[in-house]
Write a protein that binds this DNA or RNA. Structure first.
Lengths: 323, 323
DNA sequence: CTGTTGTATGATATCGATTTCACTTTAATA
DNA sequence: TATTAAAGTGAAATCGATATCATACAACAG
């Protein structure tokens, strides 16, 4: 079934059928004739033919470091909810945190495959920026702030700062920190900076360097908690960059906490289910992950619909979740 | 940059350039001339034009109930690893467990948008089967067994059976079960059947109806554990259909376990991080989720490459994970 | 009555590739 | 040497839509 056959059956030209689907000038009689034929045959215009002619694929490319992650899962669900509502579909690429793959997909998507790209990267190096500059399709970065680009991100600094302050207020003054790679500006750098400034402003600035770096897994949190506690034996609290790390640290603590001088509690960031199932549950920060995905798509749609051309940077809030 | 311009620059016909990219007859001189021009210009053939002509989109449609889930995340990662290796890309749709959306995406994908579909549904009703029959693109179902269709699934029955047996062997003879909706044949029905038969064969068949049904969340596991324990006060073990449910149950137990007559432990299924961060960690079953995703793509590829036409049903194994 | 505007229409070119077809040249075989 | 097969080539048709353009008719203003 193609447009020519429909035109023939309805006794009109191909152009008329095309106009029927694209709200062009068309008389009532022809409109009804075409409608009848379309309903009888169940005809739907070919998307590939439309794409070839119009250069719109109705596809959004989404690049994420991994998918089996609570926070990224939420971002993707946010993205999807708006994408579908707008009649687009999602092309998903996962990079396993491999920067080369990231660049590869970025260029692959750019070759007219998608109308826009949403990039959730952990590390944005100079190679990324160079490619981003050259892209012919609009991009929105989610989870990281990058000047000169459309992005929606979280207030990692103040969240981490407030979390630190809250921990100290609840009586935990001897704190350590398990962070993420400093290459990750949002989760690594900003959250650690929030911790440092929180410590400093509360009068414990000298302790801010009690810090180790973990990768984004529970197992790594377990290992690094051990490392940190062996190094600083008088800790009574550990703040972690993510909930996964915190869960690993919590696991270490209820296995080996008995041998320590004082009871140690942990805090995480991300408000995942993990924070509620450890014993005891731990304090965490709620970031608006779904909303960040939704907002990223909205920005992209505004660009695609040419409502706005100007750069947008959106910073989302947070709230502390007490155990 | 289109094929005509490349042909012009290389001093050959469009057909020659097309052959260059598709391994057709072409002399060495022309091949080299074209190669030079292609490298200089960075030309890449338009995918949409290719699609229009060849009817191959190089896209695989993947339909999942939700994405922020550990097991489904693993399946998707498995799918992606093979898909990319084969030069395909993934169109992802999430149904939020809404059967209507499931059917909607199934038909949307069918309209020549994708070369094949992978469906990870929890519930497969008659409406699904009807649509599945009519699809013009090949489908592989993952996570559920469905006779007459290509599918790759897990040995839910024996896994649950062995888990039950193992719990009884470790001294837990007064067991209860928190299951999932019976509409989900794999996770709901089969896993409960495994529990029942395990109980029966170990001589506790009369206790098999100590069962409540939860939804797939931690919070629901918490609620249902409470319900189950209020109803059967002498339980010393609870087996759950998923790790999320088990984590919720574990959370309830360390909040209210003190008031019970005996110490109660839980067991889950899915081998997620959750099983290791609760206190105490719980027994669980490892299902090969990544592998199921990978296998599903392999089956699809075999069909697309026309190596095999025959129906394939693949049942994957499992192993018990002691805490 | 002439000129303009808005509505309505279909023929045709176009998007950018692949595929068919007819044809030439070269190599291998009888 | 004659015959056949294989290698190599480009013109043109094709995939299925949309966009442009020329044209026609009605209503209406001057």
């Amino acid at each position: 079934m193609n447009i020519a056959q429909i035109a023939e059956l309805a006794g009109v030209s191909k152009a008329a059928v095309s106009r029927y689907f694209n709200n062009g000038y068309i008389s009532r009689e022809k409109r009804e004739a075409i409608q009848r034929v379309v309903e009888e045959t169940g005809y739907r215009p070919s998307l590939q033919a439309q794409t070839l002619r119009t250069k719109k694929t109705k596809l959004i490319g989404v690049i994420v470091p991994k998918i089996a992650s609570a926070s990224i899962g939420k971002i993707v669900e946010g993205i999807l909810s708006v994408i579908n509502e707008k009649g687009y579909q999602m092309l998903l690429a996962v990079t396993q945190n491999d920067p080369e793959k990231e660049l590869e997909y970025l260029t692959a998507f750019d070759e007219k495959q998608v109308d826009g790209v949403i990039l959730a990267a952990t590390v944005l190096g100079t190679a990324h920026k160079q490619i981003l500059k050259k892209l012919s399709v609009p991009v929105v970065i989610v989870g990281q702030q990058l000047s000169g680009y459309n992005c929606v991100y979280h207030d990692d600094y103040h969240a981490s700062y407030d979390l630190t302050k809250r921990m100290i207020e609840t009586g935990r003054s001897s704190l350590g920190y398990i962070g993420a790679t400093q290459q990750d500006k949002a989760v690594g750098e900003e959250r650690y900076r929030g911790f440092c400034d929180g410590m400093r402003h509360m009068g414990y600035g000298d302790q801010a360097e009690r810090m180790v770096t973990a990768s984004f897994t529970v197992a790594s949190g377990y290992e690094k908690a051990k490392e940190l506690l062996e190094c600083y034996k008088d800790l009574n609290g550990i703040i972690c960059a993510t909930d996964s790390i915190a869960a690993g640290a919590a696991q270490y603590l209820h296995e080996h906490g008995g041998g320590l001088s004082s009871q140690v509690i942990v805090a995480g960031q991300g408000d995942s289910d993990m924070s509620r199932v450890t014993n005891p549950p731990f304090m965490t920060v709620h970031y608006f992950y779904e909303e960040s995905g939704e907002t990223a798509v909205r920005i992209l749609m505004e660009i695609l619909e040419e409502k706005k051309e100007a750069l947008q940077e959106v910073k989302l809030g947070y709230y502390i979740v007490e155990p």
